[in-house]
Simulated assay, not measured.
Amino acid sequence: MADLALVEAVNLALAHSLEHDPSVVLLGEDIGANGGVFRATLGLQARFGAQRVLDTPLAETGIAGTAIGMAAMGLHPVAEIQFTGFIYPIVDQVLNHAARLRHRTRGRLTCPLVIRSPCGAGIHAPEHHSESPEALFAHMPGLRVVMPSSPARAYGLLLAAIRDPDPVIFLEPTRLYRLFKQSVEDNGEALPLDTCFTLREGTDVTLVAWGAMIQEVLRAADQLAADGIAAEVIDVATLKPLDIDTILASVAKTGRCVIVHEAPRTCGLGAEIAAAIAERGLYSLLAPIERVTGYDVVVPLFRLEAQYIPSVARILSAVRKTLEAST
């Protein structure tokens, strides 16, 4: 068991999959000789060969189309899109082919494909390198969308995604790649998909988040605890399909809910979660649901980046608002 950063846990899960499943193939821009722009695939081509870890041209549509063809013919490709700002050209391939292959062939073919991509702001990157497009892919029938928030969950969830018979969009928060380390055992044990993780028990308010925002939410929960407020923290992890039952059970206990995400507010997944709570858990609520989100603008350059990302102060303000309110 070793202490690993999130990007190292991703590398470990990829190496385990390559070693134990000969059908697993990696492909993407600069992932072989250079180990990827964030070194998530460092050393894998030297270890497993250029036929298992393939460097591709700078052509996202080509990467996606090739990976879908591989998946349809029985391989388990893991394709990397270098930044989520570059992911939009593959929407046609993913929506019209990967996500529909099982339906179109009445189950004769599946598409066991994983598309990995670093996402989110917080590393002082330029435009097109700081996107959070999870809601875009969650809207597409036939896809799973996963976003880990720690090294251990990155390892276990990526293993599960690679073993899934259907396409998975696996978004890795860039800000967390080397933010902290965690003990990770290379035991090949996958974590369950389609399941929220309750990271902290509480009775006064439910805080729901995913990806990098879990860090701000946990810090907010610590400050609330110092004031005698017990916040329950839920990491959604699999954004589609959504484990709403875990969230509803928490809201039934606390009566209040604050949803936090980095993506823009309008049509973000926070709205879907809030609607589901309103539909199925309205009578549990003691106060209106609050959302703390990014803004409906392009992620700004680094001078204003910290103003865009939801802060601990904004989360605390939303919590205090819902604690003061009553239905």
Rank of each mutant, 00 (worst) to 15 (best):
I31F: 03
G74Y: 05
L6D: 03
G74F: 01
I31T: 09
Q51I: 07
P22H: 14
L6A: 05
L6M: 13
G32Y: 08
L14K: 07
G35Y: 04
A64Q: 10
G65N: 02
A71P: 07
L18M: 04
V37S: 02
A40F: 13
L4P: 01
G65T: 01
V7G: 00
T56S: 11
D55A: 08
I68S: 02
T66M: 15
T66C: 14
T41N: 09
F48M: 07
G35I: 08
T66V: 13
R47W: 10
T41A: 09
G36C: 11
L12V: 08
A33F: 14
A9M: 03
S23R: 13
E8Y: 07
A9E: 05
A5Q: 11
A59V: 11
I31P: 04
N34T: 14
G69I: 02
G65D: 09
L14C: 06
V78Y: 10
A13C: 09
P77N: 05
E8S: 10
L44N: 01
G32A: 15
F38K: 09
V53Y: 02
A72T: 10
E19N: 10
A9Q: 05
P57A: 15
R39A: 02
T56F: 00
S17F: 06
H16W: 11
A5K: 01
V24L: 10
V25C: 12
V53W: 01
V24T: 03
T61A: 15
L54P: 13
T56R: 08
R47T: 12
V10C: 04
A46R: 13
H76K: 15
V53Q: 02
D30N: 14
G36F: 14
G28T: 10
A67C: 00
P22A: 15
F38W: 11
A9G: 04
R47C: 09
L42T: 13
T66R: 08
G62R: 07
A9N: 00
H16M: 00
A59W: 02
L27S: 10
L4C: 06
G74P: 07
H20R: 06
E8C: 11
A9S: 09
P77I: 07
G32I: 09
H20E: 06
A67D: 02
A9C: 12
D55E: 13
D55F: 06
V10I: 01
V24Y: 06
M73K: 14
I63H: 00
A71S: 09
G65R: 01
S23H: 12
I31E: 04
G36D: 11
A40E: 15
Q51Y: 11
H76F: 11
A71G: 04
V78I: 04
R52W: 01
A9D: 01
F38P: 14
M73Y: 15
L44R: 04
A50W: 06
L42Y: 12
T61R: 11
R47K: 15
